[in-house]
Amino acid sequence: MTDTSDAHLTETLIRSEPLCEGDFLKARRDTVRMPDGGVSTREYIVHPGAVVVIPLLDERHVLVERQFRYPVGRVMTEFPAGKLDPGEDPWTCARRELREETGYTAREWAHAGDMHLAIAYSTEIIHVFFARGLAAGERHLDADEFLDVRILSDEALLDAARAGAATDAKTLTCLLWLQNVRGGHWELDWHPNPDPDRHVAG
């Protein structure tokens, strides 16, 4: 949400320099002018963007994944997710990631909203999708991808979050969406799968 009255808070770019050019992530250091006229630097990660999918199996259960995440050194419980390929539409990415990682396709999809994962040091934006009318199929994991697919009740996932067993930020945020959608407080704009040949009705 942008407000023209926020001008007294806005920083403006003076110059930008690369710090790291990785295959996946890039790091930059920008010199910025502060609202009071002073100068400072901002170091941040440039991320290509990603999607996360909340797959609704029925009125009480969802699909989740268990995957080892190297930076934190532990197996995490999370909703299916993945990064955008260059120029890829988030809708396309969401359908692809669900199919490749879980083997499931969905009869209907809804874009719930977007979230910024780490606003202090990353450009990453994650597009949040719901999927329903699921049908199981074959997974197509990347060669370096190892994960388990699990079925959990909404209550079990909420309990895991409350107990500190599920700590993935995007999944915790998606739980807020899930609770409000299940409770009828937030409405979704559902659309049929545009690739019906990729869905086998269950």
Rank of each mutant, 00 (worst) to 15 (best):
M1T: 12
T2H: 11
T2A: 12
S5A: 15
E11K: 05
T12S: 08
T12F: 04
T12Q: 05
I14W: 01
S16V: 02
E21T: 11
D23Y: 14
F24N: 10
F24I: 13
A27T: 11
R29G: 06
R29D: 10
V32G: 07
V32T: 07
R33T: 11
V39A: 04
V39M: 08
S40C: 10
T41W: 04
E43A: 09
I45G: 02
P48N: 04
G49H: 00
G49M: 01
A50S: 13
A50C: 03
V51W: 00
I54W: 02
L57R: 10
E59K: 05
R60C: 03
H61K: 07
H61R: 15
V64K: 03
Q67R: 14
Y70R: 14
V72W: 05
R74W: 04
M76Q: 14
M76L: 13
T77Y: 06
E78C: 09
P80C: 09
G82D: 08
G82F: 09
K83A: 13
L84R: 07
D89A: 11
W91E: 12
T92S: 14
C93P: 04
R95S: 05
R95Y: 02
L98Y: 02
T105N: 08
T105S: 15
A106R: 03
R107E: 14
R107N: 01
E108W: 04
A112V: 06
G113L: 06
L117Q: 12
A118V: 10
I119P: 11
E124R: 13
H127I: 09
F129E: 05
A136E: 11
G137V: 02
H140P: 00
H140F: 13
D142Y: 09
L147P: 06
V149N: 10
I151R: 15
D154M: 15
D154W: 14
A156T: 15
D159C: 08
D159G: 12
D159N: 14
A161D: 13
A163T: 11
A163M: 11
A166N: 15
D168H: 15
D168K: 11
L172G: 01
T173F: 12
C174G: 01
L175G: 00
L176S: 06
L176N: 07
L178M: 08
L178V: 01
L178N: 03
G184H: 00
G184W: 00
H185W: 02
W186S: 02
E187N: 06
E187Y: 00
L188P: 03
L188Y: 01
P192C: 08
N193F: 06
P194M: 08
D195M: 06
R198W: 06
V200Q: 15
